[in-house]
Each structure stands twice: as structure tokens, then as C-alpha cells.
Computed example of a mutant assay.
Amino acid sequence: MFRPLRFALAIGAALALTACGGHKKVRPEADLAASKITTIGVNSYLWRATLDTLSFMPLLQTDSNGGVVVTDWYVNPQVPTERMKVTVSILDQDLRADALRVAALREVNQNGQWVSAPVAASTVQKLEDIILTRARDLRRASITG
């Protein structure tokens, strides 16, 4: 279901080093439904959603305690002159938009050499939105299932 969306994102997106973040909000009481604390150090819905969303890319590093996923360079077979690399950081145990930070790099092949290229900020935002939507779907499924 998400593979075509991810694939379209990989094809049409221009990726560069960017990151979106937010301020942590102090909340008097935790939303236990949004917090899924397990043996990993971060929100398990965001963790699973990140792995699902980036499953088409080779993974270079994963750290479930620190909440970091780093992909290796991915070359889309339909656009062999571009490659991308993504880093996702999960910053909290709560399922919140500001608990997720995505950074991306994009390179283009010019005369046999990979050269850095800009990434549209909207591309990183779309990737964050896909991960957050998937995490919410996983949470909803666990509550109703």
C-alpha cells in the first residue's frame, strides 16, 4: 500500500540535507495511548513506521535505543543518475509530530562523479508525513485489534 507512494517519492523528490524539528512541549500528563513503551528507547509506532517506510532502501545503521535509522545510498532504477540517503531520528517516546526528524542527502551523477544536489524541503516534509501517517495507522490497529 505504501510502496507506490514511497517509490513515487523516491522518483520525483529532490533530496538534500535538511531537517525538520520542533520544540518539545511540556505536558502535565502523558498520553498513554500515544506512548508505546517497549524494550526500545523510543516510540515503537514511529520506529516500526520508519522501518516500513524506508524498507525499499538499504539500511546502513539502526539504533532502536537511540532512535536513529540511517540508510545507505539508494539509486532508483528508473533514475540511475540520482541517488539519495536518508537519516531519521526519533526523539521521544510519544507519538507526536515533533518527535520525528528527517534529514536527506541527494546526489546526481555528472560525468561519472557523484555531486551534491539540493533537496526540496517539501520532500523531507512529505517523508515525515508518510512516517507519521503509518505510525498512527499502526497505533490505531493495535488499539482496535
Rank of each mutant, 00 (worst) to 15 (best):
M1I: 03
P4G: 07
L5N: 03
G12P: 03
L15D: 01
T18Q: 10
A19P: 03
A19D: 06
C20N: 14
C20I: 11
G21F: 11
G22M: 04
K25H: 11
P28S: 14
L32A: 07
K36Q: 14
K36I: 04
V42K: 14
L46P: 14
W47A: 09
T50N: 01
T50P: 03
L51W: 00
D52W: 01
S55E: 10
S55Q: 08
L60P: 02
Q61N: 12
D63E: 10
N65I: 11
G66T: 07
V68A: 08
V69Q: 03
V70T: 08
D72L: 00
D72T: 02
W73Y: 12
W73N: 02
Y74M: 03
Q78N: 13
T81A: 11
M84F: 03
L95K: 05
L100I: 13
L100A: 06
R101C: 05
A103L: 01
A103C: 06
E107Y: 01
N109K: 12
G112C: 02
P118F: 06
P118G: 13
V119F: 02
S122P: 02
Q125L: 11
K126H: 05
K126N: 09
K126L: 13
L127R: 04
L132D: 11
T133K: 13
T133A: 14
R134F: 03
A135G: 11
D137W: 06
L138P: 13
